[in-house]
Design a protein around this nucleic acid. Structure first.
Lengths: 234, 234
DNA sequence: TAGATAATTGTCCTTGAGACACTATTTGTC
DNA sequence: GACAAATAGTGTCTCAAGGACAATTATCTA
């Protein structure tokens, strides 16, 4: 049985890029210029360019860098979504990636004001399918929800979400971020203990004030490795 | 930018099917009959048949059922491995699956004695690259190791490994299985507590003896859902 | 019937999350 | 300058579940 007996499916890459902005969790969406799903919002992605990309991760990274101007500090493979019906052009598979970035570090090529083709979209608004909800292209709603689940899961047992924050951040910002991701309140003490125990961060020496006592700024250590904890947050 | 501008990569599906047999963890390997890697051992898999398979999971399941005679009780997507160099025929991607089965429930189409084309291979022997070690085809060594990591990880926080055991089994068998997977000793008491807490199993009422006190046989409840624990085993 | 072997249970210890109150530092108001 | 408000950060007790390990129970063999 050789490959020639088989029609080859379409193969694409799509990424769910999260950030925290204006006190809410958002993902990057693009408005499609072409058919199918012309004018629908879709995840950033596209076909693998076998002449440029050594691997699918390469494709994902390249596409995200194209759109945001910077390489996301965290990128991992999420899942591959395949079926004969997810793309009207035929049997297709999309290798989906999951990425985090600080929106402050990005430089979206096209800002919403000039052209609505690239936009940070509030996760809440995507979950709420009432009102004037426009469905995402393809099965991108499903991919997004899969990614959101993974982000929530990882927030329970790792410091992963820090990659949504700028290079220097306060414990308070981290605390807020986690509460937004998990959608419930978490004890500061618990997060501070984990933050300390992870040994991933160092004080910058600077502090920043938000109307009250100044907070210490932290940054990732040079050689920091992502730590997994033995227990989940409740 | 349309799909026509791009050469489509090859797309395959491969599965790592684990079982427990003769007190060791094994995976199913097949000897390749065709080039490339003719006569090398490889993971069960192959090209997606877009006319038969609705999704890649379908392909994985179909291939495994072909080889073992039964549908594995647990199958999940693992990761997609892609690169321009993993297959000498060109840029390719393999959607890898991770599956568990009780070898007692299988009926390998070809047994080792008659034809060595399908065989349960000891995981230990695959890790040990000394001596007369024959490398697996493609990047299947890497895929296998990825799968083994996932199995170990899941054994720490779920009852997943029970799917390596036959429909009826004892707590002692489960204990042994976990110790083999993790490669270290685990307190029986801890596992028994989790087993109870999971609420996934029920007594069959039967017992079985292995030379000493008879052990209670358990089976999965009809409506059992896989439970994840909040903490990892040490 | 005693001894061996494995199954199962009891109980105390330890770790790290949850609750929650307390202290510290900065800003603004009078 | 004293003090109130607000957020940053700490102390400390409780609780749940894993780890250690010994005690108890059931079954088989000699």
């Amino acid at each position: 049985m050789t490959q020639e007996n088989f029609k080859s499916p379409l193969l694409t890459v799509d990424s769910v890029l999260f950030t925290i902005k204006d006190n809410s969790l958002k993902i990057l969406l693009l408005k499609r210029k072409n058919s199918p799903f012309q004018n629908s919002w879709a995840l950033p992605g596209g076909f693998i360019d076998v002449n440029r990309d050594d691997s699918a991760e390469n494709t994902a990274s390249r596409k995200l860098t194209d759109k945001t101007g910077v390489t996301p500090p965290y990128l991992e493979q999420l899942n591959t979504f395949s079926s004969k019906s997810r793309d009207p052009r035929g049997w297709s598979a999309s290798i989906a990636y999951f990425a985090l970035i600080a929106h402050e570090e990005t430089n979206l090529k096209v800002t919403p004001r000039n052209d609505e083709s690239a936009q940070w979209v509030d996760v809440e608004s995507l979950m709420d399918e009432t009102a004037n909800y426009q469905p995402l292209a393809f099965d991108h709603q499903q991919i997004f929800q899969f990614a959101l689940e993974r982000l929530k899961q990882k927030a329970l047992y790792s410091m992963l979400p820090v990659f949504c924050l700028p290079k220097e951040f306060t414990l308070g910002e981290y605390h807020t971020l986690i509460e937004i991701i998990l959608g419930k309140s978490i004890q500061k003490k618990t997060l501070y203990r984990r933050f300390e125990a992870s040994n991933m961060f160092e004080e910058t020496g600077e502090t920043v004030a938000t109307g009250a006592r100044a907070a210490m700024l932290y940054r990732l250590k040079e050689d920091a490795e992502l730590v997994n904890f033995e227990r989940n947050l409740g």
